[in-house]
Every structure is written in C-alpha cells, then in structure tokens.
Design a protein around this nucleic acid. Structure first.
Lengths: 201, 201, 201, 201
DNA sequence: CATGAATGAGATTTCATTCAT
DNA sequence: GATGAATGAAATCTCATTCAT
C-alpha cells in the first residue's frame, strides 16, 4: 500500500515535471497532469494541496541547492579577493564543478526553475541567482575597487546571465555527465582567456 | 475613415505591446488591451481575428527581420570560410552591429519574442535563432573542417545562447542607444579574445 | 464482535455530534467525523448508509421525543380547557419541567435539531415545533372560544418561538442542570405574569 | 442599455434573495442564482465580483440600518436611566416602532441576515445584535445597579433573543404593516407586565 | 462600425461516496 | 469487516470570443 502511494506520488511528480516543462507554471493544467499520471483529477489533491504546493515539491529542493551553492561561493570569493588571478580562476572553475554536479541530478527541475516559473513563487529565482553572480563577478574582476560604470555593469550582467542560461541550454542539449562537465570547462576557458586579455588593455 | 482605422489599429498594437511585455502572451488579457487602447473589448476583433493574430501582427515583423538577418549572416559566413581569422572576427562584429540596429527599432518586440511568447506560435523562436547561430559559429570556428565532437557542440550552443540571452538582458537593463552598442561591443571583445586564445591552443 | 460494533457506532455518533454541532449539517465533513472517531472514512458507510442517515440516527430520537412531548401536552391542554387559569398555568409550568428534563439528556442534539439542521430532512423541525406550541397557546389563552385574529396569532407565534429559542440560547449559555431549570422558571414567571395581566384587560 | 443593466442587476439580486433565503449563504449556488435570474453563470461576475460581494450587496444595508438603530437606542436608554418605568417602557415601545419601520422595507434581507448568514462575514450579526440588546435591557431593568447573577443574565439573554427571533418569525408570518406593528406592541405589553410583576416580588 | 453585455468552456478545488485490497 | 485511495460531480471563478443593439 505504501508502495502504491509512492508509485502514484512518483507518477504525479513525473507528469507534473513534463507539464511544467512544456507549458510553464501558470499555463499548466492540473487536469492534464492528473490525466498524464493516469489518475482522477481530484486525486492529485490527496497528495499535494494545490498547484503551487505541487510545484514547490518539485522545484524547491533544486532552488535551495542553487541558492546554497551560490551564496557559499560568494563568501569564498569574498575571502580570496586579493589572491592572484589563476587562483581566482580556479575558484571559478570550482563553481562550475559544483554546478555540474548539482545539475546532473536535476536537469529539468533547473530548466523549469529558471525559465518556466512565471506566476509561481519562484518567478524571481533567475534574477536572484543572476544578481548574486553579478556580485561575485564584480568581486573577481574589479577587486572591489574603483567605479563600475553602467557599461561594465551591463557587460557583467550579461556574463552572469550567460552562466545561468548556459546552464539551461546545456541541460537541453547534453545528457552525459562528462559532456556537461567538459562543456562548462570549455566555456570557462573562453571567458577566462577573454577577461585576461581585456584586463591587459 | 481609413486614417481613423489606422489610428485605432495603432492604439491596439501599442496597448498590446505593453500588455504582452508585462504579462506574457498567455497571461495577457484582451479586455485589458482594449481598455488600454480606449476601445470596446469586442472591437479588437474587427481588426485582429483573435489573440494569436494580434500577437502575430505585433511580433511577426521582428521575427522575420531576425530570421532574415541571421540567415543572411549565415550565408555570408559560409561564403567567407577561408578568409583569415581577423576578417571573420570582423564579421562577428558586423553581426552585432546589425543586431543592435535592429534592436534599436524594436526593443520590446524582441523581448516579447524571446521571453514572453510562451503559448503562442512563436514560442520556439528563441531556439530557432539559437540553432542558426550555432551553425554560424560552427562555420566560423571550425572552418567547416574536421569533426565537431559533442563537447564542442555544446560549448558553441552556449556561446550562441549567450548572444541571444545577452540581447534579452541588455534589452531589460539598458535603454540608451549608445549603451546597448557599447555593451555588445564589450561582450564581443571578451568572446573574440577568448576564442582567439583557444584557437592558439 | 457485536460489542465491538456497538463501540464503533458509539464513537461515530459521538464524533458526528461534535461535528454537526460545530459546523452544521451541510458543512460537516464525513472525513472529519471518521478521523475524530478514529476509523477509516469508508467504514462509516458500513454503519450508516450516508450522511443523512447518520444525521437521522443522531437527531431523530430527540426530534421524536420533542414531538411526542409537545403533542402529549397539546392533548392534555385540550382536555383541560375549562379548568381555571391557575391550573392552566400549572400546566404551562409542567411543560417547562418536561422540556428541561428532555434537554438535560440531549442538549447538543436539541441545539443541532433547532439550529444546525439546514440541508437535512429536519430543517423544518423548528417550524413544526413552533407551530404546535402556537396551537397550544391558542388553546390556553383563548379557551378555544371566539375568533383569533391575525394580530393575536402573530403574538402567540412569537411567544411560541420564544420558548423554542429560549431553549436554544439557554443550551448555549448554561451548562448546569439547576441553572437550566432556574432560567426557564424565571422566563415562565415573566410570561405567566404578563399573560395574567393581559387577561385582566 | 443602462436600463437593461439595472434590470439584470435586479434579477440577480432577486434570484439571490430567494436562493440565500432558501439554502443559506454557504449552500447557495451561484449557478442556481444565475439560472434563476435567466443569465449565464459567468455573467453574474460582471455585476458582483464574487459570492460574498453579492451577499454583501444584498444584506449589508440592512445590517448597517440595524446596527445604527440599536446603537442609537442604547445611547438614548443610557441617557434616560433614572426616569420612571412607564417612560422606559415608552422607550421600549419606540424601539419596536423603529424596528417595524425598518422591517417593513427589508423582510427577507433581515431573515437572511439573522438566520441564513452562516459562512459569510455576517455570521455573527445575530449575536452582535443580541449582545447589544442585552446591554440595553440590563440598563433598563437593573438601572445599572447591583449585581447581575448568572441566572438573571440568562433570563435577560433570552429576552433579548426573543426580540431578535420575534423579529424573524414575525417576518415569516405577517405581511401587513399594521399587523407587524400590532404583534410587537402586544408582545411588548406581555413583557412589560411580566417584568413589572416580577419587580414587585 | 462600435459597443460592452453575454456566453460558455475550462481552470482549480472540495467532498460524499465507492471499491479494490 | 476495515481501510483509505480513488472517483467524479459540482462548486466558484476567469476570460477569449460572440452578438444584439
């Protein structure tokens, strides 16, 4: 009986994952999720009190892991501000390593969190994450010194978003662990080289 | 009378632009659009057969211009494959220039096309654009020779999406013509330097 | 086993009593009743075919006792029409005594019957009781003689309802046996004095 | 067109009045109200935002008039505490006069307010009214002096409720202005005489 | 042509009742 | 018999679309 309940729960979550992925939070239909899960519409509500609760059960763990990771990185970076560039780049690399590990376990959840959560309580997650990454980059690149003009701010915002969105597209295109890792390392190398070159100028 | 009709059409489109920008396609309300346009709800349907048709009238020109631009670039790049790297980088730069010009004339439309079109017939536009940019980058970077492994493919996909998403975030953050241009040049420089460095290795 | 069944029946009735008292018939929940009784939801239906049947099992005895009492009193009063006023007042007093005894044993059931039965087959019980009390009062006051105009009818209807509602409010405010009795005697005294005074005029 | 809207509004209110009267607030159905009003279900929401709003539009004016009346009376009584009994009884009589006038204009609304508002924001109206009437009676009867024991408190509560419920039953039985007035005067006389008699003892 | 009231399908949610285990 | 998961009808409410005026 417990097996049965867990089985249904799993089918609901699985159906919801596909539905939210396909239609986004607000256009997703509890009816369709129930139908896809092969149960009666009302039965979903025995497992998840409402649409938002179902969404949270699916997405919240991934959200928390992301925030945890990013905030930890932010603190680490802040503590290493005056170390040399290679070391900092090592930290950036470490960032990607952690991201990849996290993503390997929750590809679709992350995609939903970042691109399909409009109307839910996570609709600002992408901006939150991007804002923190911006702060990290500002620490790394500008050593916390000097003025950051609006042009630089935008460039950095784009870089930050690149990471977040790079995460998304990698999730859509790549399935194997080593490929994900390699893709990010590749991208990191481009950025590192590009930033170093710019720093010279 | 025709002038009158055009005036109303314009007011509908203007109201729709704000509504779609603010709420996204599927959460936008025909009633609110009519109210904002200062006409009766039902009157919209004299001008645009339904919600999707109104959306198309608003977004399709921008969509076509983008596809046109991107496909033109693709052909140009293909015809210049064996020129040297700096020249190719010049092409990449030209890409950005054209993009910027296009964006300066249709900021909101582009933002809607790329981030607020879920549920409409343009919901795959972002992926279409990204896919073509991927092909362009593959031409530029790998000279059409040799094998492109899955790792490289992903890295390139990320680069391509970076451009598209860079467009989006710039549109959200920057309002002045010169700032848009500067942000993109900045980002292009990072990529150019990074790719050149990688090419050496 | 029969003992067991009786035990469960009792627990269901006890839980239902509280639920109906608290939420009224139509807003009461079979699930909550089952939970409160410590049994499975579906198991209620082994004992009581449906919600209405459960309600009847709980409330019908009290309803019948009330009707019995009231109808008995009605007959007694009819048989004593030409006795003198003090004797009649004694009868009225007896009415209250019997009511109190009945109420002492089924406070909650009475409250539910009179104020929480909307949507059930007893939703007209209050009116039925009041109507009969009206008839009794008409016998007592007008000796069955003469015409009873609509004005008198209404006044009497109010008096009757006063008793019924007095019952309800007493049940809500007073918990001890002697207080219930005292409250009713008090009220009866006011009515008796008031009616006597009116009778002189 | 405005006439048409007013006509529909009137039909909705009329249908709602019957529905709430028959089934009580929480068991009333917007569908049935719409059907009874001869319009589509969704159309109600063009006129009243939701069920509660419709209920308020129907019942609130009556509620406010009642509270106004009762609180005015309370203040008047407080200002006349040491006048003699007949004069006070005159005030009680005035109370009834005002009540009657109010009731003549909103019979069903009052019945719904007092007996069919469970689940709405007016579900405590009856108790509020009764509580204030209790305070008035305590002023009148005990002149604000001495202790009021629990027995007296219950008796007074019953008297207060009698008035409120007397209002209800009169509304159900009597239709003509003069009859309503007469019934209440009659009842008032009984109470007045009864209380006087008791006061002697 | 313009209006905006009306429609009706579909969304989320609740709950008495049923039924496989 | 007991269980509680599942059902399915019905409730409230929204909104693109239609249509009488």
């Amino acid at each position: 009986m417990q097996t049965l309940k867990e089985e249904i729960k799993h089918r609901i979550l699985s159906a919801a994952l596909d539905e939210f992925d396909l239609h986004g939070y607000s256009q997703s239909s509890m009816r369709r999720i129930a139908a896809e899960a092969g149960i009666a519409t009302g039965n979903i509500y025995r497992y998840y009190g409402n649409k938002e609760e179902l969404f949270q059960a699916l997405i919240r763990p991934t959200y928390l892991q992301f925030m945890n990771l990013i905030l930890t990185i932010k603190e680490e970076v802040r503590g290493n501000l005056f170390k040399d560039v290679p070391e900092q780049m090592g930290l950036v690399d470490a960032t990607f390593n952690r991201l990849i590990t996290l993503l390997e376990e929750s590809r679709k959840e992350t995609k939903i969190l970042l691109t399909q959560s409009q109307g839910s309580s996570f609709e600002h997650a992408k901006r939150e994450l991007t804002d923190i990454i911006v702060q990290i980059f500002e620490s790394v690149i500008f050593h916390g010194e000097g003025d950051i003009g609006p042009n630089e701010k935008t460039a950095v915002a784009i870089l930050a978003l690149t990471i977040v969105e790079g995460v998304c597209i990698t999730l859509q295109n790549v399935t194997e662990r080593e490929q994900i890792r390699h893709s990010f390392v590749e991208l990191a190398a481009v950025f590192a080289a590009g930033l170093k070159e710019k720093a010279k100028a």
